[in-house]
Amino acid sequence: MQKKVIVFFGRRRNWSIPYALFLFVFVVVPLALIVVYAFTGEDGGFTIGNFRKFIMHAEAVNILIYSIGVAMITTILCLLLGYPAAYLLSRLESRRASLLVMLFILPMWINFLIRTLATVALFGFLRLPLGEGALLFGMVYNFLPFMIYPIYNILQKTDPNLIEAAQDLGATPAQVFFRTILPLSVPGISSGIIMVFMPVISTFAIAELLTINNIKLFGTTLQENIYNGMWNYGAALSLVMLVLIMLTSLLNKDSSAKAAEEGGLI
């Protein structure tokens, strides 16, 4: 008996059992429940009524489209702000760079709710109105590090010889950037996009706090329905969002696989 126990724990494969159990109970089962609930009506029978309700419900659809818009704008702003920052960081000598990268990453150590509450306080102090502008500011502020880090990671690993080779072949500084540095950093960019775009769609707390609940994002609608006991409709909305997120990651499939391979992802 004792010997059997030893053999059981000796197999490395078996070490993953606790996590596999966790994964099953808290990820696979809930996902299955979402699918089941989404296709279940008030009476408990199979229906696609929940989805029909969503499509017919103009406000919900508008909120979804608006959320995608907010996510896209946030992603673009993060990219525009994050790329130059990552580029400059990657050019620094390593000791100074690691200190600065640390400063960029530091906010991520604080819970984002606390950060967002602080932002609200800051806007109040500066007498700036809360609303759409504040929402975008909060989103960018929260997700910028997720854009900077993977891009920095890729750029910093780029062989400086490649840049010299491009110069040697006649590339001006601008051509060096657009023909070598930028294409080489694509894996970092796409992993940054994934890490910003996907969470922004489903974030509701930032919207709630920074717009005093005036602007609703898709995450807010979802949360409200579940909160009010509309389990089946809420599950259908969740499923819509899951499919959407899956589609974005499929679009990025090639480059994100490569990015993961090259360590672009955190």
């Binding site: 490649l162 010299e164 080779a165 491009a166 040697d168 006649g170 070598t180 294409p183």
Partner: peptide, 27 residues
């Protein structure tokens, strides 16, 4: 360097990994 009439073969080749052989040479 980009204005000099010289070209270099680097020690560790420094080929562009995002381009194939043709586009490396055509760069």
């Amino acid at each position: 360097p980009h204005l000099r009439p010289v070209n270099t073969v680097f020690q560790r080749y420094a080929l562009f990994p995002h381009l194939n052989v043709y586009h490396n040479i055509a760069f």
